[in-house]
Design a protein around this nucleic acid. Structure first.
Lengths: 217, 217
DNA sequence: CTAGGAAGTTGACGGCGCGTCACCGATCTG
DNA sequence: CAGATCGGTGACGCGCCGTCAACTTCCTAG
């Protein structure tokens, strides 16, 4: 597994030019797609639009992706891969239900506010108001959450509940509340996280009360 | 506003043939679309596929819908309009937080299991694993839920919480848990509703415990 | 009952996006 | 340096797109 120092000096690290160009082209296409999606909306965008925003030929595009859906998938996967380690890490440290839930939501909402800016722009689809795509990497993130819940149950941190439904509930609240959050005048990840956390810890009655000083815009 | 009995006998009720044909054609297209979407998946379907599944000409299609997206929207709207009155009615009767939440989830999950069968079939999109479309009528349903929550708060039924986020949380859990529910070997609306209700009433700790007799498959 | 007009249907058409593939230049290997 | 391989290129044929002039059907006023 260990590479012994027999490689030529000039470039002691990576592969040949072929490989370089490949990764470069892939990134060129992804970047172009991001721009075009943001400009035209996902629905109105054609593969040709993406190609045109690129110095490459049409045939080259199809060496990398089969369709605009696949490009979008790749973008989603990138996002999922970016946030998953943060979520895992946050949950790993948790010593209680409170910390587990709080860390999950806090991390998620913060990520949405910071990194998801351009991704959100894509959503202004032509006719379709909204769209959520669960790519393999996104689904893997869901599975990780369920695993973490199961582990937490095994450790006695959580009561022995239906881990699958609990995962679904957390995911549902995370996505749906974040959708609302970003539409607010002054989006605040902490407010959203507090709301979701209180809900999961104590139900509706435990939610922060409004109009009593801790109001939310 | 009242129509006086001056109309000719033969057909004392409705409008001319033009109007009849129009409604008929619209329905022909919607039915054809349902079939084609279910067979090919939404993504792979073209407007031409829908037209071909119809005795109509291509130009006629465009007299009724602009695109396959619009057809799908119309289908979603139909569904939303079917369930919304049931949800409203269920919530109207509620005399407590418990009833409000329980009735909402129970009604929703039952509807998904019973009426949503073919709609679910549509979702096996080509590349995209999943897709949710919020049409105007669907969004109106969300607004109704928020209104009902606000009314419940005004009545003192609910504590004064953030109605917008609470609505989002309920919607998120409803959609996400129902997605899981229908994938189970023996989908059970009552189990799902109990889970969601307990979560909203008392948080994670209030959820039904598993492996203690009341297990969930 | 009929004539003229309004409404709606038809299908052929030009335009374009689709995915492919034969060709060719660039890179790698011995 | 020569041969082999890899991957980029862009023109091509196909089918879908939305349109629109011609036509048929229905409505209505006289």
């Amino acid at each position: 597994m260990e590479q012994i120092e027999t490689a030529p000096r000039p470039r002691p690290k990576q592969a040949g030019k072929r490989e370089q160009t490949k990764q470069q082209n892939r990134q060129i296409i992804l970047d172009a797609a991001r721009t075009v999606f943001a400009e035209n909306g996902y629905g109105a965008t054609t593969v040709r639009d993406i190609i045109r925003a690129t110095p490459l030929a049409s045939g080259t595009f199809y060496n990398y992706f089969q369709s605009k859906e696949e490009v979008y998938q790749a973008m989603q996967d990138e996002t999922a891969l970016a946030i998953r380690p943060r979520l895992r890490e946050a949950r790993e440290k948790a010593g209680s239900v409170e910390e587990f839930i709080s860390a999950t939501f806090q991390t998620f909402f913060e990520f949405v506010l910071r990194d998801d800016v351009d991704v959100r722009a894509i959503r202004h689809n032509a006719d379709i108001t909204r769209m959520r795509v669960d790519t393999p990497e996104v689904i893997a993130g869901f599975d990780e959450l369920r695993e973490d819940i199961e582990k937490a149950i095994a450790r006695g941190l959580f009561p022995p509940v239906d881990a699958d439904y609990l995962m679904a509930a957390i995911v549902g609240v995370a996505f749906e509340v974040s959708e609302r959050m970003v539409r607010r005048a002054a989006p605040d990840a902490a407010v959203a996280a507090n709301f979701a956390t209180a809900l999961f810890l104590g139900g509706i009655r435990a939610l922060p009360h409004e109009g009593v000083g801790s109001a939310t815009a």
